[in-house]
Design a protein around this nucleic acid. Sequence first.
DNA 1: CCTGTCATGTAAACGGTTACATGATTCC
DNA 2: GGAATCATGTAACCGTTTACATGACAGG
Lengths: 186, 186
Amino acid sequence: MNTLAYALLSFLARRPMSGYDLMLAIQPLWQAKHSQIYPLLAKLETEGHVDYVLVEQKDKPDKKVYSITESGHVALQDWLQQPSGDPIIRDEMVLKLYTLWLGDHASAKRVVEERIAYFRKRLQRLEVTLADVQDEHSEVLTEPDILSPVFTRLKLLERAITTARLELDWCFDFLKQIEQSEKKPR
Amino acid sequence: MNTLAYALLSFLARRPMSGYDLMLAIQPLWQAKHSQIYPLLAKLETEGHVDYVLVEQKDKPDKKVYSITESGHVALQDWLQQPSGDPIIRDEMVLKLYTLWLGDHASAKRVVEERIAYFRKRLQRLEVTLADVQDEHSEVLTEPDILSPVFTRLKLLERAITTARLELDWCFDFLKQIEQSEKKPR
DNA sequence: CCTGTCATGTAAACGGTTACATGATTCC
DNA sequence: GGAATCATGTAACCGTTTACATGACAGG
């Protein structure tokens, strides 16, 4: 059982989904391709942590809708009690920022602007998602309940948005400093 | 040539180092074990991007001190111009936060407190490093120069510290909300 | 007609971790 | 005496990405 397996169980604990749905839903929290998810779901099924029903569709291809089993719930609960692995960040752009001194002002600008574009896009996506969640679940705002699945989702969304804004601010500050040092060359 | 290879070149462009030194220095920007770094350095050497001299030591084991070559510099510069991969974050604790609604207040607290402990430690390490860099390079503060290797390092350190503080604030806020909802049970 | 979405799978290759292997020195 | 640091390497395994493979429907 790896982390992705628990991630799948966690999503299935919220609602039954197909492997395709899971693949899309899981992206913000744990990047994974369908080629990793489908075999894992099959493995979780043989272990009895999930089961599925084949749902036939007319306009779209048939699908397997997976649900978490009692055994899966136990595994999830157990995982929650275990100590977690440290966060791992693989950010190629940060590595390039670290290497900027090798180049010139123009290439420095390009790297920072690429980063701005990325976080602008990300921030926009996050804000749309937040608005959607708030629309569909107005009750969470008036009566916050930690043990509701929507509350934790909202909290994580807010956190992601604050972080993205911070990253953008940092980039703008950096850009300004680059432009200032361009004006007064040594 | 993968990202780790460019990371190694980037560090060697700052100063010649052994594989062991690289392994330690690279951790904050790109996690990698020595078992990945040593073979990669050998590969980079056969490709002519780095070379090394064997330095014999009396009190410690001998070491290979690697330097970047002209060809390595060209490869690095080329990489800087290429578009970067999106940042990838694998944070098991975030996944658990997302799953908190399944458990009770006590287990929710435990997960958040584990996260607080992690970021407290990280913040402390980062602050010590920042102080060290500022001590050794006071010139960067009085006359900031974007194209100096210390400047980019300092900028990234400041960014990491701000992010860690933000994570901690978020955790404390979450903890408070958990405790509040404990007092008024539904 | 072509591209994108829905839907599921397998195989090969690459990236990364854990374990195996060795050995001297230093510090508790 | 035992653990930690310095130092380099290999091998097996696990996790992840990319490519191969198929097919129907919808929209521009």
